[in-house]
Design a protein around this nucleic acid. Structure first.
Lengths: 116, 116
DNA sequence: CAGTATCCTACCCGATACTG
DNA sequence: CAGTATCGGGTAGGATACTG
């Protein structure tokens, strides 16, 4: 008798009360959808992501990329054995299942701006 | 020369660096999509929302409903002049433009659970 | 180039009690 | 019934300096 309701959903060790909250738990936060949006059509290097998102700090970008990688949505590939490093980020096959959702998120943002 | 980049989007007084982040700013957070998900097909009273979301606190539910109302996504209608009150929440026409997005969010949550 | 390490702040959100 | 008031903790995220 620890849980209030038995209908919890689980994903990667976390519990969610609803399918919608699960999705938001994975792609929520201030920057994750922005990262996914930029990786939707392109594989990008770390520095390219920084240029695409000039208002995020290095620390935050790094942490969010790590989160997304741990959730299996993006892949991180290192191309150089020693510094200067070349690292590329790309959507995984699982991450690509989010593309329609990311597109809908982006489209609604544009729509809302056009209304206001 | 106050902004770093001139390409900021604005919605209801807030600035966003990208259309995707705007959407997440409006429907992000832990509970907003869950509320919208439950209001997607039904008009619901406050107490009905509470029953549908047993793990949210009254304070948080109240604050999130107010946020959604201020952003024009839901309407709040009071049916009684004095306590006990009857209040119903429903999506506005603008809020209904989010339905395909909410459905995609919910569908991906179900999909992710089925993968795990 | 691609990140960590440290430090710090804001605010989101929970718990509980009270009110029109 | 449908909320607010008050208090407080946890953590997401920012600023800056440093490293392989």
């Amino acid at each position: 008798m620890e849980e209030q309701e038995p209908k919890m959903l689980e994903f990667r060790g976390k519990q969610y009360p609803c399918c919608a909250s699960l999705t938001m738990g994975v792609i929520g936060g201030k920057w994750k959808t922005v990262i996914l949006f930029h990786l939707m059509n392109n594989t990008l290097r770390y520095s390219e992501l920084r240029k695409a998102m000039p208002t995020v700090t290095e620390r935050t970008l790094s942490l969010q990329l790590k989160d997304l990688e741990e959730d299996g949505l993006i892949s991180r590939t290192v191309y150089t054995p020693k510094p200067p490093l070349k690292v590329e980020y790309a959507l995984t096959e699982f991450g690509k299942t989010l593309i329609p959702l990311i597109q809908a998120v982006a489209a609604w943002g544009d729509y809302a701006v056009s209304c206001a």
